[in-house]
Amino acid sequence: MAEQVSKRLKTSGSSGLTIGTHNGHFHADEALAVYMLRQLPAYRDAGLVRTRDPALLETCHTVVDVGGEYDAAKNRYDHHQRTFATTFPGRPTKLSSAGLVYLHFGRQLVAQQLQNKHADDSEEVTLLWNKLYESFIEALDAHDNGISAYDPAGIAAAGLEKRFSTGAFTLGAMVGRLNPNWNDPVPSDPAEAQVAEDARFVEASERIGTEFSRDLEFYTKAWLPAREIVRAAYNKRLEYDPEGRVMVLEGQSVPWKDHLYTLEDAEGNVDKKVLYVLYAEKPVPDAKWRIQCVPETKDSFQSRKPLPEPWRGARDEALDAITEIPGGVFVHAAGFIGGNKTFDGAKAMAIKALTM
């Protein structure tokens, strides 16, 4: 009887649609799947049923992460079937319920964020649809399906060990820690217990959803507009170095790494890659300038060519004396970034560093 009571509880909505998912211990994938659906006009006021009762799930308009069925025509998005092997286009990771919902509704979410400036199948929407999957959704799919970022056997064979703990703070862990602890008090009344559990799920859904929305906003409002700025800077790089190893972002700094790597890959010139990127600290005439080394990969701490070792850790007049270039501000001790009071000074530092 208690199980039946908990199964029948639901959060009602005014749209007439109901989203179904499982009750009990919740995970990041269905938490985000529910959130993404509720960002769409059709689901904005949708009710929520958390149950494993097939009869109740049958009454739901859309079901995620439970039910043993993947059929987009019927709005069923479970991935636990033995035969399930669906992946996102061009990616190897098996989808979770988050990936399934994003696969079918992600383009609409992106186009909606762009305020209908682009059709769902436009180049811009497709670019962002893929980018958001790789930068955010795929990690959840892998986590829920027990897929490691690195091959464990390969790591073991190489004898690699972690240098420190990362605190296990992943997207999945962020949601998981909102589940009750094993020794938390639970209301004796089944209905009250389910209400408390559902409240925790809604909190988890909003929390991971907020992070997704921040990513979506960044890529639509900041990352995408930066693409043409980086392209223009890349096309002018030979003005500063005949081999194109110095790129200057005019006006102000923008997110440049992804776009630079894409442009270089498209050109296919592996011998003349950009080594240093120059940009003003602020978009004002008297701003100081930075010289940043291009990492070997986007998330790498290894630079293609770090700033010269004798410069590292030096500041102000001491840096001027070492570089013989006036206006020095600093060079980081790790050699991946430095600064000068003027553009000409930063450019001189970059040109000299190329020869050292």
Rank of each mutant, 00 (worst) to 15 (best):
D78H: 03
A157W: 02
R91D: 09
L103S: 02
A111F: 03
K94D: 00
G159Y: 11
T87L: 00
L127Y: 14
V110Y: 06
G146Y: 05
E123R: 12
G146T: 11
A149H: 13
T83H: 12
A173P: 00
Y102S: 07
H118R: 06
G172A: 03
L132I: 13
R107Q: 15
T87P: 01
L114S: 02
L95E: 00
H80Q: 13
S165A: 07
V110Q: 11
Y133T: 07
E134C: 10
A119D: 13
K162L: 12
E124D: 07
F136H: 09
A111L: 01
F105K: 15
L95Q: 05
N145L: 14
D78M: 07
H143L: 04
T170L: 10
Y102E: 05
I137Y: 01
D141N: 10
S96T: 02
R76L: 08
H143M: 05
L114H: 03
M174V: 08
S135I: 08
S96Q: 06
P92N: 05
Q108C: 08
F164R: 12
G146D: 11
F136M: 07
H143S: 15
A153T: 11
G159K: 12
L140A: 06
R91S: 09
F136Y: 12
F105W: 15
A73D: 13
A98H: 02
T93M: 08
L114V: 02
T93W: 01
A98N: 03
S122L: 06
I155R: 12
Y150P: 00
P92K: 14
S97G: 10
F136V: 06
H79T: 08
V125Y: 14
D71Q: 07
E161M: 09
Q108Y: 05
D120Y: 00
Q112R: 09
G146H: 09
E134L: 07
K117N: 11
N130L: 05
E161Y: 11
H118L: 00
H79A: 09
F84P: 02
Y102I: 07
L114P: 01
L140Q: 04
